[in-house]
Design a protein around this nucleic acid. Structure first.
Lengths: 219, 219
DNA sequence: ACCTGAACACCGTTCAAGT
DNA sequence: ACCTGAACACCGTTCAAGT
């Protein structure tokens, strides 16, 4: 995973090691000391290449954002703004499926990333060509929220256990929720970004919003 | 803010002190040592009343969730499911406006909260009465995401500076975004939950989704 | 039953010093 | 120019000891 121990450190090496570490052991494993270890260096050495830990976190958001932009750049345009946007968003999602720690991080610090801004810039351009006013586009970005980037925020925690296993004394207090959950099955566990954000659910919400936006455009 | 120094500690006092501390100085100020200080005790004393820090965080989510449920319980029903849901969601939002640190925390750990589950349970019940199948409701909750609870996730960071102040060398790389932002003004700075999640934007996205869902129900 | 002092393992970070 | 050892202030947490 890490390159030769003799390779000198660099901001880029530090950031890529951080992404790899997060991919393998989660974001919590990314400490300055652990990261240095991964690079066969001392924690203090990192400070020559990055300002502080926040800078590392900003940096790995940037790395992931670039990965998204490269993926999106390879896509062909669809027949209309909506299809094109949909394709891009679902492609971005694939990148997050490779970096499952990233949604949580993006939610706190995506504004610092030039790559994220470029992604949005391109989306704004697409919608503007597609007939939306800037004001509408602004609204649209809000309506989409993190869906514009390919993930939806998790309101339930994956670690809390499966849906059906609600303890009986709790179930009595939550009759409607338990009733609903007993009827629901999730389609594809491999496509999950968290507990409940699987591909089918993500697309449902995305399409609902894109359709709603498209109606507004035509008025 | 804190009660008499003689008042014995309790889980409840600890949690309420934690909420007050987060309200005043942010979630980062909530450390075991600082929290103890606030209660005129030693950090180690807290461990008699809470298991660990995670337990404190779960607990303050619960406190806020209860606040939401109490607020919602006082509301009258609207003419239909959609109006009622809208009222509840906007009322929940008011609670988050008093606890601006809470959205970020809810996004990571709301599943542990009985109060949050009760909120959802009631929403599921409302929609079921309103003519939705459980399967549709499940989809609907996904489509709404955190909006069901009254906030939308922030993709941009409030600390990063105002929208118009994009440095010129950056602006050249982001023509569409800069074009958009130059036309946009946010309506009401007081209603903001973060950089861009103000009341008007929140309602736009919420109504778009509620309208889309309502159409599905009628089919 | 409730609270605390001392101690441990772990953070991020600074700074003077090494090559 | 690049890396490091020692040190600091701060975490969460344990545990034996106090009342």
């Amino acid at each position: 995973m890490t390159t030769d121990a003799r390779t000198p450190l660099s901001r880029e090496r530090v950031l890529h090691a951080a992404v790899a570490l997060a991919d393998e052991h989660g974001l919590r494993a990314v400490t300055m000391r652990r990261l240095a270890e991964e690079l066969d260096a001392e924690a203090m050495s990192l400070y020559y290449h990055v300002a502080k830990k926040e800078d590392v976190l900003d940096g790995i958001v940037e790395v992931v954002a670039q990965e998204i932009n490269e993926t999106v750049a390879r896509l062909e345009k669809g027949p209309d703004w909506r299809q094109t946007a949909r394709r891009r968003i679902l492609a971005a999602r694939q990148v997050f499926l490779r970096h499952r720690w990233a949604p949580a991080l993006f939610e706190t610090r995506s504004s610092t990333s030039l790559g994220v801004l470029k992604y949005y810039d391109s989306l704004v351009g697409l919608m503007h060509e597609g007939g939306f006013s800037h004001n509408r586009i602004h609204h649209a970005l809000h309506a989409l929220g993190s869906r514009a980037l390919g993930f939806s925020q998790e309101l339930f925690d994956p670690s809390a256990g499966a849906s059906a296993e609600v303890p009986p004394e709790l179930a009595a207090q939550l009759p409607n929720l338990v009733g609903m959950l007993s009827e629901i099955t999730h389609d594809d566990p491999d496509s999950t970004l968290g507990w409940c954000d699987d591909q089918a659910e993500f697309e449902f919400g995305l399409d609902l919003i894109l359709a709603g936006l498209d109606l507004l455009r035509e008025r």
